[in-house]
Simulated scan of single mutants.
Amino acid sequence: MTGICAERVVVVTGAGRGLGRAHALAFAAEGARVVVNDLGAGLDGAGASAGPAQEVVDEIRAAGGEAVAHSGDIATGEGAASLVAAALETWGRLDTLVNNAGFLRDRMLVNLDEDDWDAVMRVHGRGHFLPLKHAAAHWRAEAKAGRPVAARIINTTSGAGLLGSVGQGNYAAAKAAIIGLTLVAAAELGRYGVQVNAIAPAARTRMTEETFAGLTALPEDVSPLVVWLGSAAGEGVTGRVFEAEAGRITVMEGWRPGPTADKGGRWKPSEAGDAVRKLLADAEIPQPVHGAR
């Protein structure tokens, strides 16, 4: 198959449904060979099934593409290592990693259990970190062996991670952490030929249909940006966060220094308070947290 990802080997986590499925199909349509990962869990992370990943593989193959299924838990070291191995053992290479897997356990903070916190942080935090770590180790070894690397990692954050979201303290914290991970990975891995970016998608999936009932954008609307970032055509783009919804793409600009006051010495509490009041009067008003009234 031809396309901007012809001959590239792409891994997509959480690719059995929703955004991940759309990404896997879009990569395959552009000529990529795809490892389709999905644990087959429910919306809250419970249960497991190899069915969703295999269904996407079957769909790609029916369209003339190449794909293999992986149903391991990528939030474990063993699962993440086997994910990278699936690409290397099947096609002898790995070019792009799309970290997309996740689930929700929404509660207001006073009702949020420790288990709900830990489970969401695990799937989004470790589920991004461990595949990234194992893929990066492979690419570093390739670069040190003198073999050219043009690798790509696309992480999945959220508007909740950028602005916060009422009732999603665990999810918002996990998605904000992914932004930090993206920036560090881009800085550390660039020397090995690896580019790392993140997307904050807005699309109607089973994860968003209740929280954002009015959202009508489709997962397929986000995938073209992901495919481009995962291709060789995205050369030079790294350490960025993009918001994508329907036909709109926005470069998100993170924390930057705003108004500043410098006394040149230690403040008294009352002086610090007076200074803060003056600074806030000159500062931009923050965008509201999702769901805030």
Score class of each variant (00 low, 15 high):
27 F>K: 04
83 L>Y: 06
11 V>A: 14
176 A>F: 06
218 L>N: 07
281 A>H: 05
129 F>P: 04
89 E>F: 05
57 V>L: 00
143 A>C: 08
199 I>M: 06
204 R>E: 01
247 G>S: 04
151 A>H: 02
79 G>F: 09
280 L>I: 14
275 A>P: 14
161 G>R: 01
260 T>S: 14
271 E>C: 07
147 R>I: 07
187 A>D: 11
35 V>N: 00
185 A>Y: 12
283 A>G: 05
106 D>S: 07
268 K>W: 10
4 I>L: 09
68 V>R: 09
205 T>K: 07
13 T>F: 03
96 T>L: 00
182 T>C: 14
185 A>V: 15
224 P>W: 13
19 L>D: 06
44 D>R: 12
138 H>Y: 14
29 A>M: 10
79 G>K: 08
67 A>D: 12
169 G>A: 14
51 G>P: 12
222 V>C: 12
4 I>D: 00
179 I>N: 11
103 F>A: 05
174 A>F: 12
145 A>C: 02
178 I>P: 14
228 W>S: 12
70 H>A: 07
82 S>V: 04
45 G>Y: 00
171 Y>E: 05
212 F>M: 14
267 W>A: 05
76 T>Y: 06
7 E>I: 03
44 D>W: 02
90 T>L: 03
156 T>M: 01
208 T>N: 07
167 G>T: 13
119 A>S: 10
116 D>W: 03
30 E>G: 09
228 W>Q: 12
235 E>N: 13
61 R>A: 14
180 G>W: 06
